[in-house]
Design a protein around this nucleic acid. Sequence first.
DNA 1: TTATTTCCTACTGTATTAGTAGTATATTAT
DNA 2: ATAATATACTACTAATACAGTAGGAAATAA
Lengths: 161, 161
Amino acid sequence: MKLSTRTRYGIRAVLELAENYGNGPLRLKIIAQRQEISLKYLEQLMTVLRSAGFVRSIRGSKGGYLLAKAPEKITISDVFHCLEGSVVTVECVENESYCPRTNDCIARQVWTEVHKAVMGVLQSITLQNLVDRAKNNKGLSDIGFENEKEQINLQENGKTN
Amino acid sequence: MKLSTRTRYGIRAVLELAENYGNGPLRLKIIAQRQEISLKYLEQLMTVLRSAGFVRSIRGSKGGYLLAKAPEKITISDVFHCLEGSVVTVECVENESYCPRTNDCIARQVWTEVHKAVMGVLQSITLQNLVDRAKNNKGLSDIGFENEKEQINLQENGKTN
DNA sequence: TTATTTCCTACTGTATTAGTAGTATATTAT
DNA sequence: ATAATATACTACTAATACAGTAGGAAATAA
């Protein structure tokens, strides 16, 4: 059950934009270099995010990309759905008519729970949350993850929109 | 992020064995019919589960497959790992040396949390748990999913383009 | 011996992924 | 006006994984 590079790259790119929020457009070339992503590939991903309304672009010299909303208004779930399509590990979880035995299928219950668990995590984290974590990490150097759990718990309310 | 049919079929097959636990071997032909899975394909999946020690087989006439352990000793996580390879949504979650920026990468923290959440669900459910649920469901006929649906609806805010 | 069932190996069409490539269009600076 | 820069759009492609199919060998029971 691997995640596509689309989603991984996309989230890293959007995170760059979040860190740059308020400072005007950021060129994809810079993001591509910093994140070691193919520029041309990145362009394609950004197009998707743009038509979904999460980022906007400015063309031409001195152009680039910006977040279209404040970083606290965009969850990882938003970006994920946009690029990965769906968390749906199994079709029947969201589409009940997909399989005739939906009601009896105990396996489906498992996938439903997995689905909920993943959604719970993705929806609880905003871009702003991650930017904040990044700042804290820098402060702590690479001592690491000590207060990770506390931070996560604080974010349990997330889900603005 | 879709689940392969390998894992889905495998779990359904193993669930059949769990329901049949204590009653001798069950033929793949029966499982294939009941679960609408290609027999030949199912054979391959069972081979994997067999060499991992979760099921054992009896060849020849009156042969078939049995669980190699009690259903309460096998978790969904066990079967999942055996067939899907890994929950690892992203390589760097389990393999720290995969990427040089592991320590600084905030995106990685997200995938780590997703990973933990999924593992938590999969590890908490045994085959016996599911057999028990199936019995309860039969008692309730198909009344039983009321709460389930409500919970799913709460999560439908999708922005899926 | 015959019917049944698992075991083993190899092959294959389809779809997706992760890009690459080229060109067009918009914007800024000179 | 022109050059430089950056996004926008379209098309193509190599590699891989997925989801089977196919055929026969070996074991077992009746």
